[in-house]
Design a protein around this nucleic acid. Structure first.
Length: 91
DNA sequence: ATCATGACTAATG
DNA sequence: CCATTAGCCATGA
């Protein structure tokens, strides 16, 4: 676990349910604006799958981005989160 | 120290 | 909307 990785995960954990942020956004929060690509590397080697909401991190252009096996699951999961947050009125 | 590797980005055709 | 292109950067070998 590198210090940069820590910051990245810390930032990702802050993303509210039903919302998404770009890799770039995370990079900035991690103190290294422009390291969006590196962020991908970190999430890719995610030590705690399912604990870290890496599915809420998408590309800057809105596309799903990557995920285990592909991005299909990611896309659907985000929809579910949006709905549940709406129903339960979670910010 | 050097080099290759992407779950990226912004610009262009 | 899709493809290409050059720039970017932490990591690991």
């Amino acid at each position: 676990m590198t210090p940069f990785a820590k910051k990245v995960y810390r930032a990702v954990l802050k993303i509210p349910i039903g919302e998404v942020r770009s890799y770039k956004w995370v990079a900035g929060k991690a103190g290294r604006p422009g390291a969006a690509r590196a962020v991908g590397q970190i999430l890719k080697r995610n030590p705690y799958p399912l604990i870290i909401p890496c599915h809420r991190v998408v590309k800057a252009d809105g596309k799903p981005g990557g995920y285990l096996r592909g991005s299909e699951f990611k896309q659907r999961f985000l929809n579910l989160e949006r709905e549940i947050s709406k129903i339960l009125t979670i910010k």
